[in-house]
Design a protein around this nucleic acid. Structure first.
Lengths: 237, 237
DNA sequence: TGATGTCTGTTGTCTGATAACTTTCAGGCG
DNA sequence: CGCCTGAAAGTTATCAGACAACAGACATCA
């Protein structure tokens, strides 16, 4: 065939935009920019890197697509998620089809992740993790008894479980999947009666994790998700 | 405060780029454009939508960041993954830290997903799915006995399991995580002796799935991944 | 035949301009 | 003093036009 010499890794044709993307990522990590903080203006970046504004805008559009940056017209660009030169970006794309199918498909994935997270939490959680889980659980129970629902606090409890795995991937995947879904179709997770029946199982799940009983933690997680599945099916007739 | 009424989701100030992104996505699905096929040139899109070229470029940059489109200077833009107006994009980003930690972190996630996929496959697989899994398994065994390793065929076998869940999310998540990692650090999955000991368990996993034995399928998947975990730990000192 | 030059179409980037929006702040008014 | 109004400055959104760099097809020549 034509000159396909092995060992020479076909380098991309000089690409200032891609370079600028890496430089910006490195800049963010070097300056320790935190989420919600503002990035330099397009003109500043332009002048600093010696590139045109359209190139700067393509860089920003890149980070926007990755959900790392949000730019507000008239205000500037703001960091949404921490990032560094070593950050790995994994864009997922899928067609959920009808809403109901999309929810059930993600539930399959969620089941896999949540079960694993619960088991790992039961094995790896330290005293601080358990204390934090207990705190979020009790806050959730309090709000639930008071208002009859506790979507936000429920989420906080599950996030504290992810944290207890000491593996940031779980929290990030679940949170970002949830975010993507909320923005695309109405959020059914805020319905007052949604998954209400799963409420008592949360304390049982916590007890299982705190008691280092991984199989039981798995069982309780499956029970919670089974209720969620039923409610999704009921909800969509 | 100023008019911050709850329940009204603050719509973004007219955004031609975002509109164009949706229009392009809709166009791709409507014309049934397949991966590897070429998109219209920037000038064509520009003229067709009546927008400026920089806007077109930002749209392309968006799809590029999402891994949906690849644009080659002098040639044009090419579709990498199927897309439609209903496609949901979930960009994940995380810092794996040291390579070894990154691999072990993804292994936690992979364990959750693979176990769930195996169990679902055991429940949902139809005759065609089982036939396909058998075919890829036997191909893998054949290549393994011949060459001592079978990375590509091993992957095909696992993908056939994902397909048997009838939930496209599993395949996409796993494939894209793998792709992101292969491009960032050297691919250890091609090492001749990597995870060799897991070889015999693959047929046992298949037998469990074909026998509709979900708990056994879970067990076999865990055995395979335990070997992978050991090998990762061995490999990195 | 095979390598080389040339032409056309396409993407990459820059420059400069205008519009639209946000934030700030000074001034007016009760 | 406190609140509202509106002008001004800063910032992003988009456009238009230009030139450079590259890929692919075709013609040319040894």
């Amino acid at each position: 065939m034509s000159g396909s010499v092995t060992g020479l890794p076909r380098l991309p044709p000089a690409n200032r935009t891609r370079d600028a993307i890496n430089v910006i990522a490195e800049y963010i990590s070097r300056t320790g920019l935190k989420p919600n903080e503002r990035l330099p203006t397009e003109h500043e970046v332009m002048a600093a890197l010696g590139i045109g504004r359209s190139t700067v805008r393509e860089v920003m559009r890149h980070f926007q697509a990755l959900g790392v940056v949000e730019t507000r017209r008239g205000s500037g660009s703001f960091l949404l998620k921490p990032v560094s030169a070593a950050t790995v970006h994994v864009p997922l794309s899928f067609d959920p089809g009808p809403v109901r199918d999309g929810l059930l498909q993600t539930l399959d994935v969620r089941r896999g992740l949540e079960v694993e997270a619960s088991m790992l939490a039961a094995v790896r959680a330290d005293a601080d993790d358990i204390a934090k889980m207990r705190a979020t659980l009790e806050e959730m129970e309090r709000v639930h008894l008071e208002k009859g629902t506790a979507g936000r606090e429920d989420l906080a409890f599950h996030l504290s479980i992810y944290d207890a795995t000491h593996n940031p991937l779980f929290g990030q995947i679940m949170e970002q999947m949830r975010g993507a879904f909320e923005s695309f179709f109405e959020k059914p997770f805020d319905r007052p009666d949604f998954a209400r029946r799963s409420f008592p199982f949360h304390r049982e799940l916590f007890d299982a994790i705190a008691g280092r009983d991984a199989p039981l933690a798995r069982e309780k997680t499956l029970q919670i998700l089974a209720i969620v599945e039923e409610d999704i099916k009921d909800m969509s007739k």
